[in-house]
């Protein structure tokens, strides 16, 4: 599903440039539940941004669903994101003036689905995350855990190949953290590839595979005891 070979990325800061990713090799197969661990500055967010086509890598190869990602322009990236990827952010990133239902339906608008169908599908997914009754509430009327569940519903609504979650529990307390992780586990159990970035051991421990990043290189890559049938290469 995701194959990364010798990936490099540097950011220019003034005249200097910081080498953030120094040759990452990573292969994530369909249906895996992977967490990327690392302290801040380890390059884990940069890796997610590149995987999520929100940023461009300098060197190396990146294949998403078998397609080599190269010479991306904004338009192509937007189409691929809409088709293959679902995002869950630490700060939820819901649009404040849209209701929960409209937020969930938004990716379908960019996919070109008509309004009636959009709202029906969005409602289905809201029900799945247990927020059907909250469909017509604005984000500021929801709790943090509810917002993140709306965001997850939004990430799933286009039936993406991969869900990318950037510190999805970073802004949540422990109880809601558990409910969000349970939801991600459910999604993975249905066969969806889930890719989580976190710096919390407890969160990483609930995934099936932990990749540890330090100073832009992978220092360890191991399966957890949660692994059943799916294995990695």
């Amino acid at each position: 599903m995701i194959r990364i070979e010798k990936l490099h990325k540097s950011y220019p800061i003034g005249k200097e440039s910081i080498h953030v990713l120094k040759g990452i090799d990573l292969h994530i197969k369909e249906g895996e539940f992977v967490s990327i661990m690392g302290s801040s500055g380890s390059g884990k967010s940069t890796l997610l941004n590149i995987v999520g086509l929100l940023d461009i890598h300098d060197e190396g190869n990146y294949y998403l669903n078998g397609e080599l990602i190269k010479d991306m322009n904004e338009k192509k990236a937007a189409i691929l994101r809409n088709k293959f990827l679902g995002f869950v952010f630490q700060s939820f990133n819901l649009i404040s003036y849209k209701t929960a239902l409209e937020n969930v339906a938004l990716p379908l608008y960019y996919k070109g689905v008509n309004r009636k169908e959009r709202l029906e599908i969005a409602m289905e997914y809201l029900e799945k995350v247990g927020l059907k009754e909250w469909a017509n509430h604005l984000p500021n009327e929801l709790s943090g855990g509810q917002k993140q569940r709306v965001a997850i519903a939004r990430a799933l609504v286009t039936k993406p190949k991969v869900v990318l979650a950037d510190e999805p529990t970073g802004a949540l307390d422990s109880t809601t953290t558990d409910s969000v992780m349970d939801l991600l586990k459910d999604i993975n159990n249905e066969g969806m590839t889930v890719f989580v970035i976190t710096h919390e051991e407890e969160v990483a421990a609930q995934t099936k595979r932990i990749v540890r990043l330090k100073d832009g290189v992978i220092v360890s890559d191991e399966l957890t005891k949660n692994t059943n049938s799916v294995s990695h290469v």
């Binding site: 929100l54 189409i79 088709k83 990133n93 819901l94 990716p107 960019y110």
Partner: peptide, 16 residues
């Protein structure tokens, strides 16, 4: 700007 970023992450093309 942030709203546009969200929209783009969800698949909005720049022209839209």
């Amino acid at each position: 700007t942030k709203e546009f970023g969200i929209r783009k992450a969800l698949g909005a093309q720049p022209l839209s």
